[in-house]
Computed example of a mutant assay.
Amino acid sequence: MKLRKVTVAAATTLVLALTAAGCGSDGGGTSSGASSSAGKKITVGIKFDQPGIGLKTPDGKYTGFDVDVATYVAKQLGHNPGDIVWKESKSADRETLLQRGDVDFIAASYSITPAREQKVDFAGPYLLAHQDVLIRADDNSITKPADLNSKKLCSVTGSTSAQNVKTKLAPNAQLQEYGGYSECLTGLENKVIDALTTDDSILAGYAAQEQFKGKFKLGGFKMSNENYGIGVPEGSELKAKINAALEKMVSDGSWDAAVKKNFGPANYQNEPAPKIGVIVS
């Protein structure tokens, strides 16, 4: 396991931001400077179809770990929950949304990668997940990554997960890319595909849904390390402020509470909160 650290300049910026965040604030509120943003709208990108991570429910509510993280961060930036405009951010659209200025930041199971860092900036990471597969509960033919060879493997367009399997683990897997994970799940249930691959945190959320309990199981393969970061436009001053908010979320116990709330029902064995600026490769 390798760790990639932020530069000295970035670390200095983070320290300054943390110092600023600590001045003029009470135990659970925002700094006096950030409070001036109250009432001003902020647009945040999330997933709409990932139970436990980012989900828009039929009654128009938004739930999931990323939603809770984004809401906490927005509060530290001076925005009340009612100030947040949630925008769907599919995997293939995230860089474009940030580059066009359609969103202020994105918290959407957004893994930090060198290729993406060439296009946008990342705060965090705020969660370390691992790539895994979801298969039907009665399927005993897939017990290791190599067993995915010749199997119909599904992931979403723009995701790094399927390509990771194709290039490193099972080059003969029959890759099928859909627009959303819910489409992959339907294919898996109907036996149109054999396995769905993405991060274990996302898969656990699907498997824990009431209508799917007992139908699927996680393979238990830790095929990669996925460092979830919050994407911001390149050069945005929000990066340091968001890092300060994430540090506070961990230190005041809100991070642990959000993990338990969103992943606890699925018995998801999460990693401890990662250190800001340290990427596990």
Results as ranks from 00 to 15, higher is better:
residue 11 A to F: 13
residue 13 T to F: 00
residue 19 T to W: 15
residue 22 G to W: 14
residue 24 G to I: 08
residue 24 G to T: 13
residue 25 S to N: 14
residue 29 G to P: 14
residue 43 T to I: 06
residue 45 G to I: 01
residue 46 I to M: 04
residue 46 I to E: 02
residue 48 F to I: 00
residue 53 I to E: 11
residue 55 L to T: 04
residue 72 Y to T: 07
residue 72 Y to V: 04
residue 81 P to I: 10
residue 84 I to N: 13
residue 85 V to G: 09
residue 91 S to M: 08
residue 93 D to N: 13
residue 96 T to E: 15
residue 101 G to C: 08
residue 105 F to N: 08
residue 106 I to F: 10
residue 114 P to E: 13
residue 116 R to I: 04
residue 117 E to H: 08
residue 118 Q to I: 09
residue 120 V to G: 08
residue 125 P to N: 06
residue 125 P to K: 06
residue 125 P to Y: 09
residue 125 P to W: 04
residue 127 L to C: 00
residue 128 L to N: 04
residue 131 Q to T: 11
residue 139 D to Q: 04
residue 140 N to R: 08
residue 141 S to P: 02
residue 143 T to V: 04
residue 149 N to Y: 05
residue 149 N to R: 03
residue 156 V to M: 06
residue 159 S to P: 00
residue 160 T to A: 10
residue 173 A to L: 12
residue 175 L to D: 08
residue 187 G to M: 06
residue 189 E to R: 11
residue 200 D to I: 05
residue 202 I to Q: 12
residue 209 Q to A: 08
residue 210 E to M: 05
residue 214 G to K: 10
residue 220 G to A: 03
residue 226 E to G: 00
residue 229 G to P: 03
residue 230 I to D: 00
residue 233 P to E: 10
residue 241 K to C: 13
residue 243 N to V: 15
residue 256 D to S: 10
residue 262 N to K: 03
residue 263 F to G: 01
residue 265 P to A: 06
residue 267 N to Y: 01
residue 271 E to I: 00
residue 274 P to E: 01
residue 274 P to H: 02
residue 275 K to C: 06
